[in-house]
Write a protein that binds this DNA or RNA. Structure first.
Lengths: 187, 187
DNA sequence: TGCACCTATTCAATTAAGTGAGTAAGGGGG
DNA sequence: CCCCCTTACTCACTTAATTGAATAGGTGCA
């Protein structure tokens, strides 16, 4: 049950509709999960039935009405309980691209290089978004000032992790492209 | 269908039993997937039925017999086809620890810090294993020499990605611990 | 004016993944 | 001698995730 915890984490920033959550809502939450809308709506329904979240219907003109969800007291307790419990073993990266790179030698190296390039574009775009969000959070302050003043540091820390991950993707991508290029020119 | 591709990637190194695969088999494959044995055996059965892999029973003394799997021609074609197809959008990190850190501000900060410390121990251990494997692969050669001589570079590249990931975990963990500590002492 | 895209959600079905326990034989240490 | 660890695998069950639609009004632009 990872999705419901991610949803609760997202709802700590305030109420949100299923659509908001599906769209990423807050980029720093989108770091550690991403899923199709259908899954979200289903999970939100379940969580509502279990009393972890409550919905408030907002009638809108010239837009479909929406249901804004927020954490109940029970939901908040669940968050606290979850955050305090010891976590199990870490998960693997589980990325399609790595599988392809692993198999590159027996397949089409050029296709794999294209996939890496594609991924690097994604990473660069994500990193740019994260950097904008960071600027927005810091508002010119240093990291230390921010952490002294801000209400919450959690989202900032997860943002940092996401940024490091994408930077690593870019750096590794360059190395991988370079080493794979030798293979094609050598052959 | 990620697991079956990971299995095929692992079998490129040579034949292996379900048990071998479950134990990690090759550390560089263990970077991008990890799963319970039951899942593996189930998937191996399916793949065998579909003709992607073939089993060879090895009778052992003072040990249960085992079935060694290897890629068939069809399996190899499937690997090549998979490696050449364009990959979709990248997956999120999807890590429990990040969710907890995100929620740290409303929960037990000390518990979250403990979880980070725990994770850092894991990361350090994994990194050490990867470094040993790297030394083993390079055998004193430089990276460039290795890539010129080695039969395959894919596994080396995925190994590099895993190493970067764990190093990043360690670095980020330190930052996170430091910033969260201020919170506890301030309160 | 027509086409494609945005908001906001729902239905249906399938496949993948995770959880928990159990079997069976040999080996090693206190 | 008992207990736990390792090899090697199996059964049963539950939950999570993916896939492919469909609905339905509004917005922008060419």
């Amino acid at each position: 049950m990872a999705l419901r915890h991610a949803v609760m984490a997202a709802l700590l920033e305030g109420e949100a509709s299923g659509y908001d959550l599906a769209k990423g809502f807050d980029a720093s939450v989108a770091n550690f999960w991403m899923t199709a809308p259908q899954q979200l709506y289903r999970e939100l329904d379940r969580m509502e039935r279990e009393g972890l979240i409550a919905a408030r219907v907002v009638e809108q003109e010239r837009r479909p009405n929406k249901r804004l969800f927020s954490l109940t007291e029970a939901g908040m307790s669940a968050v606290r309980a979850y955050a305090a419990e010891p976590s199990g073993k870490p998960t693997a990266i589980r990325d399609d691209l790595l599988v392809k790179v692993h198999c590159a030698d027996v397949g089409d190296i050029e296709a794999v290089r294209a996939a890496i390039t594609e991924r690097m574009k994604w990473a660069a775009a994500k990193l740019a978004r994260y950097e904008r969000l960071q600027d927005h959070l810091l508002k010119g302050r240093t990291e230390d000032e921010y952490c002294a003043q801000a209400e919450r540091v959690g989202p900032y820390l997860t943002l940092l992790r996401g940024m490091a991950f994408e930077r690593e993707n870019l750096q590794w991508g360059e190395t991988a492209l370079r080493l794979l290029e030798r293979r094609t020119t050598a052959t």
